[in-house]
Simulated assay, not measured.
Amino acid sequence: MEEYAQIVDKIRGALLGGAVGDALGWPIEFQSLAQIRSEYGPAGVTGFLPGRPVPHRITDDTQMTLFTAEGLLRCPAGADPIPSLRRAYLRWLDTQYHPGPGPTPDGWLATQQFLYDVRAPGNACMGGPASAAEGL
């Protein structure tokens, strides 16, 4: 049982660490290392950036990571994860087109209002799930 708890802690830590790194890094996502060092010094970004909202907002990358994790958690043991992931990405896509959860959200994650915010996802992120939805 202790080994299971350690695995869960590692997964939780990886998800949290990714979200924190994403929150710190989104303002400089498309800058080169030279641009970052020029603007923020040789160490780069080491904390919340001045003039940015604190806490930093969740990004599309973190949104999709959460829905990926949910899709994997919903997949029955030993089953092909693709159908579960497909449904998870469709739930995420719903957060990009609606201002909040509908009257019958599909699962706990889909009830979280903070996820219903468009954070400039790329064409592949929007187009892939939208194409999958057409096949339903």
Rank of each mutant, 00 (worst) to 15 (best):
G41Q: 09
G17M: 02
L73F: 09
Y97R: 10
A133T: 00
F114H: 10
L24D: 03
E70Y: 01
N123P: 04
V20C: 13
L73K: 06
Y116T: 05
A79T: 06
A69P: 07
W26C: 08
V8S: 12
T62A: 14
G51E: 11
G78Y: 04
G122M: 13
M1D: 10
A43N: 09
Q112G: 13
G128T: 05
L115A: 04
G100A: 04
T59L: 08
T104Y: 15
K10L: 13
D61H: 00
L93R: 01
Y116Q: 11
G127V: 14
L24R: 05
R74Q: 03
R119M: 03
W26E: 08
A124V: 11
L85V: 01
L90N: 09
Q113R: 14
G78C: 06
G51M: 11
S84G: 00
E134A: 07
D22S: 07
G18S: 14
G100V: 01
G71D: 00
G127R: 12
I58L: 15
A124Q: 12
A132C: 07
D60W: 03
P81L: 02
R12M: 15
G78F: 04
Q96W: 15
Q63G: 02
T59S: 15
L136W: 03
E134K: 12
P103Y: 00
T46K: 12
A120N: 02
G78M: 07
G25N: 08
G17R: 05
T68L: 10
A88K: 01
A34T: 04
E29G: 05
L90D: 04
L24S: 04
Y97V: 13
G17Q: 02
W26P: 06
A120F: 00
Y89C: 10
D117F: 05
T46G: 14
G107Q: 12
A14N: 09
Y97C: 12
F48Q: 09
G102Q: 13
N123W: 11
G100F: 01
I28P: 02
A110C: 11
Q31I: 06
A5P: 01
L66Y: 07
I7L: 10
L24V: 07
A130W: 08
P121E: 10
A110P: 13
Q63C: 03
A79L: 07
A23P: 01
V20N: 06
P27I: 06
E39R: 15
E3Y: 14
W26Y: 08
G107T: 01
V8F: 09
P101Y: 04
L85A: 00
L93S: 00
G102R: 10
F114I: 07
L73M: 07
V8L: 13
Q112T: 12
S32T: 08
A69Y: 08
D106P: 03
T46P: 05
G18P: 00
